[in-house]
């Protein structure tokens, strides 16, 4: 456990010290259209040594390497999808900030629609139940009525 602590402290000390600009002037491509594509791609890619930062935002050395890698591939004439495929093959799904739709992300992607549909169904059902019970007594009222009637009888 001790080395974990030392590692953490070292990271905590080093990380802010390395703070500089994310995208450096010398990395940028001369072609503005290609550079724009590189920036858009960079925003979709995770800096894997950071927490929840895209390589576009991060000033970690690894992020810089990835930014340069993305630009090299774009310059070689690859499409955005080819660049992404290459990076996934090399680093795994973890590199994508927007996970692909696949069996293990089904739940994730279906959540917004799922909650919406289940919620809407719930609302419709409770509205129907309520309209049906309009004018009827609830179970507890029914019980109370029975109790009062019984008391009268005795």
């Amino acid at each position: 456990m001790r080395w974990v602590l030392i590692l953490l402290v070292t990271f905590a000390l080093l990380a802010p010290a390395a703070r500089a600009l994310a995208v450096q002037p010398d990395e940028m491509l001369p072609d503005p259209a290609l550079e724009a594509r590189a920036r858009a791609l960079s925003k979709e890619l995770r800096c894997m040594v950071c927490q929840n930062q895209s390589i576009d935002d991060s000033d970690a050395p690894l992020a810089r390497d990835l930014r340069i890698l993305v630009r090299e591939h774009l310059r070689a004439g690859e499409t955005d999808q080819q660049v992404l495929d290459f990076l996934i093959a090399r680093y795994g799904e973890f590199v994508l900030l927007r996970p692909r739709f696949s069996p293990h992300t089904v739940l994730l992607w279906l959540t917004p629609l799922g909650v919406l549909v289940i919620g809407a169904l719930g609302i419709a059902m409770s509205a129907r139940r309520q309209r049906k019970s309009e004018g009827n007594l609830t179970a507890s009222e029914e019980a109370r009525l029975a109790e009062i009637l019984q008391r009268k009888d005795s």
């Binding site: 995770r46 929840n52 799904e93 973890f94 590199v95 293990h104 992300t105 959540t111």
Partner: peptide
Amino acid sequence: LVGTLYPLALEALSGEKISVGAPF
């Protein structure tokens, strides 16, 4: 909620690591 917890849950259950970030 699901987007925030999904990567943690997935890693704990299957060991697979994914990222859920701003684009999602």
